[in-house]
Simulated assay, not measured.
Amino acid sequence: MNRLSAMEAFVRVIETGSFSGAARQLHVGQPAISKSIAQLEERLGVRLLLRSTHGLSPTEAGQNFYEHAKRSIEEADEADLAARGAGATLSGRLRVCAAVTFARLHIVPHLGAFLAEHPALDVEMVLDDRNVDLIEAGIDVALRMGDLADSGLTARKIVQGRRLVLGTPAYFEAAGEPLTPPDLTSHQAVVYDQRGGGAVWTFQQGTAEMAVTVHGRLRISAAEGIREAVLVGLGLTISSEWMFAPELRAGTVKAVLEDWTLPPIDLWAVFPTGRQASAKARAFVTFVESRLLGSPDISPTQERQAGRVEARPR
């Protein structure tokens, strides 16, 4: 294998976790991959991989090499696309990270259209409510909601959505409907126990602002659990309307206190630090943006707030 091919073989070994997985993706025999990695280690004079009964893992030198090699391969792919022009086909693998519930409701159902549009492209969805390390996990683009804590990330705001106080009609019939934010203190709140959640909810009405500390016996660290708890009537919650979009349309969940507003929530496309977004990642973000802005779950006011400019988050 030539130098670039050897780098690609190493990247595939890291991302698949095995020589055989890399061989399948590159359509070569496993001995060719093993030989390529051995020659690479010999040329560099360092060990890149640790082999154990648990599988393969990169050494510190191997992790550094992986990050630079992946970037070089992406730049080579970009050069190919630029040379071929507008008719170029996206190919290879795109690794996307997103929150579990948001992806289940708003991304995965539409992936068939994206895959049909790019038949030579494979997509790997890493679903996690936590903010994973993009470089360590080999992520090309992540979809994240809320404020971005890391100001060094390169991000593009896709759309902004509303937060609402939500519960089932049956819950409100039994517990009463809150008429003002302080009424929430007498309700059972299902608290989202992740960054961006918590028990202190801040409302605005005109120039007035009011912070309310809610109480509840149930705290949950994943949005899927919040949804289920609300749907079975265990309490009310604060959530983006995206998270309960099907139920809001069907009337099985209702919003209250709508004359008060909560801080909106932003959806960002986030790219690994120091790396230019690849053509594959840009195509995916454009696809997601077009789907969300054409969705009945995005109101006209939200659509006008959509961000289309590359930005460093605050």
Results as ranks from 00 to 15, higher is better:
P119S: 07
D193T: 01
T180F: 13
P31M: 01
V230A: 11
L143E: 00
L218W: 07
H106L: 04
Y192R: 13
F65H: 10
E124Y: 11
A82E: 04
R156E: 15
F114R: 12
I158T: 10
S295C: 03
A283S: 15
L90G: 11
W242C: 02
F203T: 01
L81F: 09
C97Q: 08
E67I: 15
R275H: 05
G197W: 00
R162G: 11
G233S: 04
L56I: 13
V212I: 11
R308V: 15
T261H: 09
F19N: 10
E8K: 12
F19Y: 10
T185H: 09
V159R: 07
G307V: 06
V165D: 12
A79F: 04
T16N: 08
D150R: 13
L90S: 05
M210I: 07
A79S: 03
N64K: 15
E136F: 02
K157I: 12
R291S: 00
L44T: 11
V253M: 12
K254V: 04
G233C: 05
A175K: 00
M210D: 03
D140Y: 03
D297P: 06
I226C: 12
V100C: 01
E303D: 08
S91E: 09
P182K: 11
E310M: 15
D133G: 11
R156Y: 11
A189N: 14
R144Q: 04
G152Y: 12
A199W: 06
T286P: 01
W242A: 02
V232D: 06
D140F: 05
V191I: 15
R227F: 07
L179I: 04
G206K: 00
A269Q: 02
S20L: 09
L292W: 01
T273I: 13
E247F: 07
F65P: 14
L134S: 03
I226L: 15
P119Q: 00
A79Y: 09
E75I: 05
L267D: 02
E74G: 13
H106M: 02
R71P: 04
L111G: 01
W268Q: 03
T202R: 15
T301I: 00
S295Q: 07
A79M: 05
A116W: 02
F244Q: 12
R227S: 06
P58R: 14
V190I: 15
G161M: 00
A277P: 09
I73R: 08
E173I: 03
T89K: 12
E15T: 10
Q276A: 15
V132W: 04
G167D: 02
F114I: 09
A6N: 10
L49R: 10
P182R: 04
E136A: 14
A113I: 08
F284L: 06
F203C: 01
D266C: 11
H110D: 02
D297G: 03
I265T: 13
F284A: 08
F10K: 03
D150I: 10
I135M: 02
S186H: 06
E177T: 13
H54W: 06
L94A: 00
A255P: 06
Q25R: 05
V123M: 03
K280W: 04
E117R: 06
G274C: 07
L292Q: 02
